[in-house]
Design a protein around this nucleic acid. Structure first.
Lengths: 212, 212
DNA sequence: ATGCATATGTTAAAATATTATCAAAGTTGG
DNA sequence: CCAACTTTGATAATATTTTAACATATGCAT
């Protein structure tokens, strides 16, 4: 039943399911079973069924779920059809890559502008988005009711930028800087911490060579 | 006690601890307590202590851990001092950003080269790294014993590239493409799935506006 | 010295998450 | 129309993670 609060782990798996379903597109299969999805992802089938139950209506025994319908429900739950405005701060290499990332709109994310403190940079345009000077940030956020801020500045400036964002009404921060951010109650920080991924990769290799 | 296998959750927190410790650098504090770290990150202190116990020697009651020592142990555990070679496939915007990312060496990752199938692109250099044609991939991997592959190609080519990598001896794949990859037994895929982060952000906003 | 406050580290309890089991539903083929 | 088979969805068991409680060690102030 939708409306219930959902665990972060389940939430993280939902996009994976969607990926699998998208991968099946064009094969003309009308139905998909949770079992098949589970197998494709190397997961337990009960996990998949439970996860799906929290976002979707019912599957039909013996046949499974209607693929398109399920995709729609997942997309809806993930907010892909409810686009949110966001701004990005820090138009360096990574920031530019994100500004140019064409698929965000499909995920319900619309970056309306980038900001940078470097006069060499602001005034230019990247990925069709204007880069503006920092001074304009609070005004634009307030005016447009922007709720999502993306931080791609060097670590030493991240906390300052973070404060500016939350002070301008931003409620969710996607942090690519390698520092821990302190935020007021009620604001979410989602760290895109490459170091975490690297740690997992590195640990895998270490384990592998320890055991064999 | 080091040597034990460690949970992915603990592993994910270790880089966070390191960030906090780095943040404390230059404050002249010789000791840090697990309690302080926990507070900075909004975690339970016992979690921190347990996690630290799995990578570090002992802390001293009343004072905590020697900050520098602990940092060293974390870095060692995370493999920062044991640099691994990697190659990157797909020299688009994102690929270029990663190739130019100067901090990877600090994390023990050394990207030795990029690969791309576009003749317009290969032959060039990005972030000081050569972009080579795909044909050279298997040879280079084997010759250098490369274990880590980074995939930044469009989704539709990712599985093919993945197969090429694993076929060339790669054991750990860092996947930035938005598709699920199938790999042989023993190979790890670490998905850097932006959609997951976005889902978490979006869900936070949804919950927030539902409850207040 | 002695007591007090702070931090560690261990053990136990509680909460979550995963996996297994099973009944009911529904489809297909005879 | 019945039996076999597949898949769902619920319930129960297991495993894992987090949190709480406590005993012990250490430094510091009196």
């Amino acid at each position: 039943m939708p409306g219930r609060s959902i665990s972060k782990q389940t939430l993280s798996r939902l996009p994976e399911y969607l990926r699998v379903l998208q991968g099946l597109e064009g094969q003309g299969r009308r139905y998909v079973s949770a079992t098949a999805v589970a197998e494709a992802l190397g997961l337990n089938d009960v996990v998949v069924r439970k996860d799906l139950a929290s976002v979707s209506g019912a599957g039909r025994p013996k046949v499974g779920y209607v693929r398109e319908e399920l995709m729609g429900e997942l997309e809806h739950f993930l907010g892909y059809d409810n686009t949110q405005d966001a701004i990005l701060v820090g138009a360096g290499k990574l920031g530019q890559a994100l500004l140019s990332y064409e698929v965000f709109p499909q995920y319900g994310l619309n970056i309306v502008a980038g900001f940078d403190s470097d006069p060499q940079v602001y005034g230019s345009e990247v990925g069709g988005k204007k880069i503006l000077p920092m001074e304009k940030l609070p005004g634009l956020c307030r005016r447009m009711g922007v709720r999502i801020g993306i931080i791609t500045v060097p670590g030493e400036h991240a906390q300052k930028v973070c404060g500016l964002l939350t002070g301008s009404g931003v409620l969710a921060i996607w942090n690519f800087a390698n520092v821990h951010l302190s935020v007021p109650e009620g604001v979410l920080v989602q760290n895109e911490n490459m170091a975490v991924s690297l740690a997992i990769l590195s640990n895998h290799l270490k384990e592998r060579f320890r055991t064999k």
